[in-house]
Design a protein around this nucleic acid. Sequence first.
DNA 1: TTGAAAGCGGTACCAG
DNA 2: CTGGTACCGCTTTCAA
Lengths: 335, 335
Amino acid sequence: MSQSSKSPSPVPTSADVARLAGVSRATVSYVLNNAEAVRISEPTRRKVREAAEELGYVPHAAARSLRAGHTRIVLLPTSHVPIGPLYSAFLNELQWALRRLDYTVVQYGSLGLTGDEAARAWAELRPVAVISLGEITLSAHNVATLKRAGARAVITLGPVSVPGAHALVMDQTEVGARAAAHLVERGHRRIGVVVPEEEGLELFSAPRLAGARSTAGAEVEALPMAYTEESAAALAARWSSLGLDAVFAYNDEYAMLLMRAFQDEGLRVPEDVAVMGADDLLIGRLLRPRLSTVQIKMPTGDHLASLVDRAVREPSEIAERHDLMAAVAIRRDST
Amino acid sequence: MSQSSKSPSPVPTSADVARLAGVSRATVSYVLNNAEAVRISEPTRRKVREAAEELGYVPHAAARSLRAGHTRIVLLPTSHVPIGPLYSAFLNELQWALRRLDYTVVQYGSLGLTGDEAARAWAELRPVAVISLGEITLSAHNVATLKRAGARAVITLGPVSVPGAHALVMDQTEVGARAAAHLVERGHRRIGVVVPEEEGLELFSAPRLAGARSTAGAEVEALPMAYTEESAAALAARWSSLGLDAVFAYNDEYAMLLMRAFQDEGLRVPEDVAVMGADDLLIGRLLRPRLSTVQIKMPTGDHLASLVDRAVREPSEIAERHDLMAAVAIRRDST
DNA sequence: TTGAAAGCGGTACCAG
DNA sequence: CTGGTACCGCTTTCAA
């Protein structure tokens, strides 16, 4: 009610600057954007600059992009799940690299949205690109919505490729396959594969499990386990009844947890049970025995960022599918 | 030139919907926003809805907020440094909670920007709130810029409170103090404090060090160390020449690394050297000896989010300073 | 060298 | 109940 129209300091606009400098809004725009096409006299420039400074004028990004007809927003849907240090670091790097290319990164939490709802919500922001890890399953129709709303690139990082989207394949299947192959090679047959109970990790865990399953000579069993001491202890306690001789523990962190539980249970690693991690974290090398792992070669954030940038500039130029991830087993002492 | 007005599928606007439905833009707006103040006949509503559906119409967020005069953007400046699992999780939670309150979270990487540049860049987006961890040091003037640009709340999470900003204090000093006090209590005097060499962590490490320094009875020495095996080994190798009898290793991860280096060097923990971590991560409990640590009680993301929400609704209502963090030492076997 | 004015896509007031 | 229209802040022709 008392929020009258005479509030003391409404946001200063370019019109305010123009008025103070005694010029037109056009001139303000020219000066502040260093327009090449127009020559403005030095005195005028100074007047405008000073006026802007004095008012603390800051241009309005929304107005500008409304006029321009496009944004430099890159939308990054985020899951609500801790995704592990390796991917967090990668995502960070990516964000950072995008900033350097002058994109504005918008993290958009999309919990519990359907593909349709998410696509609509994202499209409202008119992002120039969308990079989806796969927390939301996009349909071809969703991709179309995004593109119609001006997205020049819709990029999926998951294993599934959506029609119309650029698929930058980071195939977790490979990780599971490498792990299982390594274990088989070391003489193991009956292999347990840990599947985290934490919600949201299926994105990674399901393909890893599938990859292990697909490995010749391996007989694999899925082992649900939460990232808690209790859960690991419970699994270790019933281990002997499982008739397994090796385990691929999803990643190094779960592996550490499980290995400790085994040791507390009196099981010897790797004699009684071989343990394999993934992600090649530093902690794996600090454990005793040192943890064998699957090293994942991720693209650098800069690399993906420049791929995105190219896709934005020339949408057709980037191939639809593009392999980005390699996985290789590293043997240390736990297998 | 050839970008004629007849391009096949430019982004559909409300005018397109209106045309297709045979009504005015106003009516479209009313229907699509379920305007209470106006009664629209059911047949018309249906026509509009169908037209919108058919065209795949999605409103333009920028246009809307331009008209509205405000956004629901919460700007979250991000450092480019891996900030540790504890804080990452917190930030994630926060983001998530904000989304649920219908805010749009924009992560803004602000590497190498001065306070002035950052404030300007952020202000362009007209965020309704800014939550700064402290990667950028804001001046009172910067806060003013943000506020003038429409920010109803500028919140700093660091230890320093900036005039004009809401300071939600999460004081890392306390963490260092608790660690040192615990060590002193256990009979140690000459305490080493690990200071990560990784850039960007000073935000946490400097206050932790200062907190330790301020502790009565403790004689502390700063120990630069990188998060690598080599660096830890080097430190362990020259340990005996340091004349120290305990170490506060910055956090649990650095502690794990250093403890392993000590053990490889033949030093016994805690007999020869007491080791203390911080953050109370799960790995600390898995180590042998179990790692003593400083547990940090962070506010939940929901809590902070609702604080932000309140600050946005009623800027004056929230106190300028507000303590949010508590730290408590947990003794296990490494001290 | 500068200014007037037409929009970009929505929303909301005021008529009809 | 619905349509016309005036903005929101900025850029960019087109004239002067």
